[in-house]
């Protein structure tokens, strides 16, 4: 437990200085944070327009789909907040990851802490969380279901962050570019805003077992609306735990291939 709290402590210290560094240009920092709210606005507007012109996705009413889309936006904004694949790969290519790897913490912690993601997207994540809370309140869903729901979303965020970090390192090793990693992110983002069941069984399996956005927010949403039984919570948590452990192991194996730069 001591190791995890130490890693968390280091992450928070790095966040403090990352925000300080970022807000050096104060006005622009504030503008970026405000602009990141756009992701929530676009999500909200998109769902609202679809339900204005049609009856929407079969089996999902307006509020349900709004919750799913904004949950997806919240989780993916948080993932982007933690990881910037371009920055990580660029630093790996020219050896600028070295100063972060000499800190007395786990390698994954060092990379996530030392190379922050798009800090402004925290605003997008928080505004999406606001809409999620609003929908839960409107639908009258009690704490017995909503608390596990939020915990599954947070666990989903952790799992996706670690998976995308592993994918970013794969992208560096095989292609020396972040483009592949970013494309995988975008795939998750574009598919995850809607019920993955509509993409057919093949994609549903892919988005459950390989890129588990299903377990991160789709199945939790189905549990919340009674489309899946409450006992599925255990399955969801177990699946996310497996995703976390395996992506951690994959990352630690892959980081051995880091070649730094110069020398």
């Amino acid at each position: 437990m001591g190791r995890y709290t130490e890693n968390a402590r280091y992450f928070l210290i790095c966040q403090k200085y990352a925000w300080k560094d970022w807000f050096v240009y104060r006005l622009q920092g504030a503008i970026w944070v405000a602009l990141s709210l756009m992701s929530t606005v676009v999500t909200y507007a998109g769902i609202t327009i679809i339900y204005n012109v049609s009856s929407g996705i079969p089996g999902w009413n307006y509020l349900q789909l709004l919750l799913l889309s904004t949950s997806s936006n919240m989780v993916m904004s948080l993932v982007w907040f933690f990881i910037n694949p371009w920055s990580i790969v660029n630093k790996m290519r020219i050896g600028k990851l070295d100063p972060y790897l000499i800190r007395p913490f786990g390698k994954m912690t060092c990379v996530l802490s030392g190379v922050p993601g798009a800090l402004s997207l925290i605003a997008g994540a928080l505004s999406s969380a606001g809409i999620v809370a609003y929908v839960i309140f409107r639908l009258g869903i009690g704490p017995l279901l909503s608390i596990p729901y939020v915990l599954m979303l947070l666990m989903g965020t952790a799992a996706l962050t670690m998976i995308f970090l592993a994918v970013t390192v794969i992208s560096y090793i095989f292609m020396r570019s972040a483009q592949f990693s970013r494309s995988v992110f975008n795939l998750g983002e574009s598919a995850g805003a809607y019920p993955i069941a509509i993409y057919g069984i093949g994609f549903q399996v892919f988005f459950s077992l390989l890129l588990p956005i299903g377990f991160a927010y789709y199945y939790p949403s189905e549990i919340l609306f009674g489309k899946l039984g409450v006992s599925f919570i255990l399955v969801d948590v177990l699946a996310l735990a497996i995703a976390i452990v395996s992506s951690y192991a994959i990352f630690n194996r892959l980081i051995k291939e880091y070649e730094s730069g110069g020398g």
């Binding site: 560094d21 100063p99 000499i102 007395p104 390698k107």
Partner: peptide
């Protein structure tokens, strides 16, 4: 590595670990 890192110091390049936009004191 993590255990070793508490007891070593490393200088890699000029501004390596310094926060670029902040004073060195930070």
């Amino acid at each position: 590595r993590a255990k070793l890192a508490y007891n070593i110091g490393v200088v890699l390049g000029a501004h390596g670990q310094l926060y670029w936009n902040l004073p060195a004191i930070d």
